[in-house]
Computed example of a mutant assay.
Amino acid sequence: MSPRSYRTAIVGTGGIATAHARAMHQSEDRARLLAVVDVDGDRARAFADTWSVPRSFASLSELLLEEEVDLVHVCTPPQQHAPMIRACLKAGTSVLVEKPPALSLAEVDELLEAERRSSGRVGTVFQHRFGPAAIRLRRMAAAGELGRPLLATCATQWYRDDAYFEVAWRGSWESEGGGPTMGHGIHQFDLLLSVLGEWQEVSAVAVRSARQTQTEDISMALVTFDNDAVASVVNSVVSPRETSALRFDYQHATVELEHLYGYSDADWTVTAAPGHDDVATRWAAESSDVSSGHDQQLAAVLDALDAGTALPVSLDDARTTMEFIAALYASAFTGQRVRRGDIGPHSPFYHRMDGSGAPWAGAIA
């Protein structure tokens, strides 16, 4: 029996939409891009022409009214994610949404409730989980081949100049939900969390050091995990030498990744502990020339649609990462350690990532 071909649409035709269109183009007809949506009609039509898409619309409501689609790719600015997900779920349509899926834990929980009432399902784009090396690392770690996890470091040190933040929706709690913690480093520490499992406690700092934004431009955190591993996390948009780096120190090996916006096997290094050379041998035996990216996550999403299961990364999965972000901000802004489960409806950080306000709120920029 041949795989089903899913009717898809893209909402928002900015830069990241190209990665989604390309992934569908590579899907071997498992996903057919039938429509695009953008408030800028000219941009929507130009995108549709580039990718040979039959129809373009000015709003999601028009799309849902006039087209029967199985999967909507939401590629808009973050503040629009939750309302668009709700609209799709109300129509019984599944969604693949760019990170973050919402601006707060409260919104995530509202979406989880909406998903429970819908035949549609939601997946969040965290494409770095789906590179072959990350999948291999999780499998080898789960099988005990690397020994116990002991220590990890996670750094997203990027550079965004003042001109980058001149775009109206950037650098605002109301539109982005946060700074590099929410919009940049989220990919790396989501991968970290997917490898190390349940986080336990966060102690953090966040500062606005150089960019004239509402949000932080640097954050740092120390994290403990249920398996007794400890990790440091750095997120920055003020670092001229840009890098995305992860390091995992296990009993039997150190596994390292350094890249920028996407990785291949060539970006990973495995250093075996004395007496455990077989770890590096097993790692190298499964080498792949496939890079991380939207192609791999879309393939996993289509597999899940075929099987009738939750989409990867599900809202439940994404909530773990979003709770970590809320805890990081809460720790940074209150000076207290925050444990998993502490951020509930009683907390201002449940409703907004800046809680009752960043320490620099109201200061002259």
Rank of each mutant, 00 (worst) to 15 (best):
P274W: 09
E198H: 12
S203F: 05
Y261C: 08
E216I: 01
Q251A: 14
V255E: 03
S219A: 09
D267M: 01
T321M: 13
N227K: 12
N235I: 00
A253Y: 00
R241M: 05
V238A: 02
R282V: 11
L222A: 11
A299M: 10
R208G: 01
S331Q: 13
D228H: 09
P312T: 10
F333K: 03
R319W: 15
H259M: 13
Q251V: 12
S314V: 10
V234M: 13
P312I: 10
L257E: 07
L305S: 07
T334E: 14
L311F: 00
T321V: 12
D316L: 12
A273F: 12
S292E: 01
A307T: 04
T334I: 06
M220H: 13
S291W: 03
A210C: 11
T254Y: 01
A284S: 15
D265R: 09
E286P: 02
A310G: 13
L298Y: 00
A206S: 12
T224G: 08
Q200F: 09
Q251I: 04
D217S: 04
T269N: 06
R319P: 08
T281K: 12
V223R: 07
Y250P: 04
D295A: 13
V234H: 09
V205Y: 00
A204C: 11
A272Q: 06
P240H: 07
W199G: 00
Q214Y: 02
E256L: 11
D267T: 00
E258H: 05
V279S: 03
N227Y: 04
D306N: 00
A318F: 07
A210R: 11
A310M: 12
A318G: 15
D277L: 05
A318R: 03
D267G: 02
A307D: 01
Q212K: 14
T243I: 03
A304E: 03
D316K: 10
A253T: 04
R319T: 05
S287I: 07
Y329T: 00
T254G: 14
T309R: 05
S244A: 14
T254P: 04
P240K: 06
Y329A: 04
Q297K: 00
L315Q: 13
A285Y: 08
Q212N: 09
E201K: 14
E323I: 06
V223F: 01
A221M: 07
D295C: 09
S291T: 14
R282F: 05
A253M: 06
R241D: 14
